[in-house]
Amino acid sequence: MEFNVGDLVTRSSYDSDIVFRITAINKGEAELAGEELRLAADAPLEDLIKLPDQERKDLQKRSREKEEVSYRLFRQEAKLMKERNRYETSDGYKEDTSYFEMRGRVLHLDGDPHYLEKCTMLYERLGIPVYGVHLPEKEMPAQVASLIHIVRPDILVITGHDAYQPSRGPENELKAYRHSKAFGQAVREARNIVPQLDQLIIFAGACQSYFEWLLKAGSNFASSPDRVNIHALDPVYIAAKLSLTPFMDRVSVLQILHHTLTGREGLGGIETKGVMRRGLPWKQEGISFSNSPNDE
C-alpha cells in the first residue's frame, strides 16, 4: 500500500490503538504525530494501516463532539465569572456603570502547525488574545527569549509532540523522552527573563512528558504526571482559564484541570494567580480594548 504525508494511519503492532498523521517518510520509515493526542512516534511503513474514509469521517465527528462539550462547559463557567465581575465592579449592582477587561495575552509555541491552527481558532473563539508561533521543538530554547521580548505575554505555552521511550531509560532519566529536554530548556530561558511565577505563567509539555523536570525548570503547569497522552487542546483550556481569571484570584490546580479533556492523570501544576485586570468606565470611543465585557 502506498502512503503519503498527511495520511491518517494506525499501527498494527499496537492493535491500532491510536490514530496518527504521517508527517514525514524516509527510507521506509514514517514519522507520526497523534491526530488528537500530542504524541510523537515512528514506525516502518509495513506496520501501518491506513484509516478508511468512513472511519476518518467518524473520528473527525467524534472529535468535534468531544471538543464542543468541553467548550460549552468552559463558556458556562466564563459567563458565571463575568456575572461576578459585573457584581463587583458595580458595588453589588448599586452603581450603573460599565467596565472593560484586559485579558491575559498568550504566546503559544507549538511544534505542530496543524495543532497550532486548531489551538489558535479555539483561543479566538474564547476571546483570548494570542500570538501563535510554529517552531520545531528543538529550536524553542533558542527562539523563546526574543519572542518574549517582542510579544510581552502574560502566559507562555510551550508544547508540541513528545513521548516517553522506556527502551532509553527509566522515567526519571531525561534521555528517555523525545522532546522534554527541549521543553525544559525553553522554560529555563523564559525564566531567565521573567523569574516570577505570577508575572509570566508557563505551561510546558506534551504527551508523556517528564512532568517533574518541567516543573523544576520553572513551569507553573506541565504534563504528564502519569506519563499518559494529553489532548491537543488541553494547553488552550489551561491558558484560557488563567487569562480570564482576575489577577487577585488564585486558581487551584483541580479547578484549572476541570475543563481539560485529559484531567489530572495527564496534567498538573502549582497554585497560580489569574492575570485578567478589570477597569472602568468602558468607553466605545477613544482607547479600544479588544475584549469588552459584551464580547461573547
Rank of each mutant, 00 (worst) to 15 (best):
V5Y: 12
D7H: 12
D17W: 05
D17E: 09
I18R: 02
V19T: 13
T23R: 02
A24G: 11
K27F: 01
K27R: 14
G28I: 02
A30K: 01
G34Q: 00
A41M: 07
D42H: 05
L45I: 14
L45V: 14
D47P: 07
K50I: 09
L51D: 00
P52Y: 15
P52T: 12
Q54N: 15
Q54L: 11
R56W: 00
K57F: 14
D58V: 11
Q60D: 13
R64H: 00
E65H: 15
K66C: 03
E67I: 01
E67D: 09
S70W: 01
R75N: 08
Q76S: 12
A78T: 10
K82D: 04
R86T: 10
R86V: 05
E88D: 03
S90Q: 13
D91E: 09
G92W: 09
K94P: 02
Y99A: 08
F100L: 09
M102W: 03
H108S: 08
D112E: 14
Y115D: 10
L116Y: 05
L116A: 14
C119A: 15
T120H: 06
L122Q: 08
Y123I: 07
Y123S: 04
G127R: 04
V130Q: 02
G132Y: 03
P136A: 12
E137P: 07
A145V: 04
H149T: 07
H149E: 11
I150P: 07
V151S: 05
P153D: 02
I155C: 06
V157D: 02
T159Y: 02
G160W: 02
H161T: 12
D162A: 14
E173Q: 13
L174E: 11
A176I: 12
A182P: 05
F183W: 10
Q185M: 11
R188M: 07
R191Y: 12
R191M: 14
R191H: 15
L197M: 09
Q199R: 14
Q199H: 13
Q199M: 11
L200C: 09
I202M: 05
S209R: 10
F211V: 03
L215C: 09
K216L: 10
S223G: 07
S223T: 15
N229A: 06
N229S: 11
I230Q: 04
A232F: 00
L233F: 02
P235C: 05
Y237N: 04
A240Q: 04
K241F: 08
K241I: 02
L242M: 07
L242K: 00
T245N: 08
M248D: 13
V251K: 05
V251P: 01
S252H: 11
V253L: 03
G263H: 08
G263K: 06
G263Y: 07
G266H: 13
I270W: 11
P281D: 06
W282K: 05
G286D: 04
N291E: 12
D295V: 15
